[in-house]
Design a protein around this nucleic acid. Structure first.
Lengths: 235, 235
DNA sequence: GCAAAAGTGTTTTATCTACACCCATGT
DNA sequence: ACATGGGTGTAGATAAAACACTTTTGC
């Protein structure tokens, strides 16, 4: 079959906004760009979409290149396509955001890319329109996490309720009453209490919990009472 | 500056999922495709992104081509990029959805495209991956309209509360108690009651309302009580 | 024994839900 | 006068918010 005539083709890239949580604050994984333009400057991890791969595949490939991780939470965020966003030539970029358990993250691999984690409030100057990508990703996470339990993706398999609360407080840059917080979290039936404690941040120790995966998948989509049937909703 | 070497370029398209509401049910505006492949079959309105235009500009251009309308509510939905979604050659498509006031829609223009409105439940077979686009757009509207007052974009400037309720019932395919509905809607302070009535659907007539634009813009972003500061949230 | 974080309940307040009758008018 | 859709109020249930003290244990 013939191709479409008289149409301009362009490069399509994927950029990944990679979030992690170290127990204290929300962080971004950035690399020092290895080629021109802007070589050596801090950048999101990205790459061009290859001829035989889908966008999701490209995003997963790029994420794995940098972190060594498979099966990470990854979601398409938005496509940025201003004609001159890359000075070299026209490149549209499909931005994805990823939520990573930093305890699984392999430092060695990312060493090659001169990668580093930056607290969201201390992100260095980024290239092109990447600041807008990061800002949008942050808003999207806040938006989505208010309705869906995505933030668990940032935690290790075993976590404590105070850790979880720190995470929410960090994402929303606020403080939450711990009594109300634990009540609400436990009311979701998403957590299973374990018998051992994390004693790293207190003498008394805090009980570990893990996700109830059945309930997790079942409730992931549910988000409001306004809506008659909470299944037809998620994007 | 030199271009990026050894990278494959591809076509980038924009497809518009155009919703309208006629007072009865939610509808989609479709065209009969004018070129191969799939010439003559029902399709979303779309087009290739031109060298000097942004994605938003392309979407607005395409929407105006078909409807004659400017300033329509238009939002980027998702980018579809499976390698073989178009059999002719690789084309990634950035899908946008639009909410149109059908009373402003100009029939003449769209006549050239053999366009027509289809109730969502009676959409004909669509080409390529467009069924997935439509489904995602429908979910996105339900999702977003549960939190933001976007559905007003589908109504004319003057509308009645029963019309508004029909719209919500149509979008969510449900029925709502009219006492609770009008209470909730009026509680938002988004509506200004007018003195004239729409007598087209009852003898008594229903009061017209219009949007309070100040409150509309102010509350557009607000959506939950969970969140401390409802400003940093929207994507 | 004391500092530091973990854990837990109750009351108040706001919001949501269910539900039924009268009104205005064109025919 | 009657059929049709428009408009309104209240009581009960549910969910959210405010708020303080006791427990554990390493030092």
């Amino acid at each position: 079959m013939q191709k479409y005539f008289h149409q301009t083709r362009l490069l399509l890239a994927v950029d990944c906004i990679i979030f992690g949580f170290d127990g204290e604050e929300l962080k971004l994984l950035l690399i020092q760009r290895g080629f021109e333009p802007e070589k050596g400057n801090w950048s999101l991890m990205g790459g061009f979409v290859q001829p035989e791969e889908s966008l999701d595949q490209a995003a997963n490939r790029i994420l794995k290149q940098l972190t060594g991780l498979d099966g990470v939470y990854l979601e398409q965020l938005y496509t940025f396509g201003e004609p001159n966003r890359d000075p070299k030539e026209r490149v549209a970029s499909v931005a994805y955001f990823a939520l990573v358990d930093v305890s699984k993250y392999e430092k060695q691999i990312s060493h090659d890319y001169h990668a580093d984690w930056f607290p969201l409030k201390k992100v260095p100057e980024l290239i092109f329109d990447q600041p807008a990508m990061v800002e949008m990703a942050q808003k999207r996470i806040r938006y989505k996490a208010a309705l869906h339990p995505i933030l668990f993706e940032l935690l290790p398999e075993k976590f404590t309720i105070p850790q979880l609360q720190n995470l929410y407080e960090s994402v929303y840059d606020t403080t939450i009453d711990k009594r109300n917080f634990s009540k609400r979290v436990l009311a979701t039936k998403l957590l299973i209490k374990l018998n051992d404690k994390d004693k790293s941040s207190s003498k008394r120790g805090a009980y570990y919990y893990k996700l109830n995966m059945q309930n997790y998948y079942a409730k992931f989509q549910a988000f409001m009472n306004f809506i008659p049937n909470p299944d037809n909703l998620m994007a």
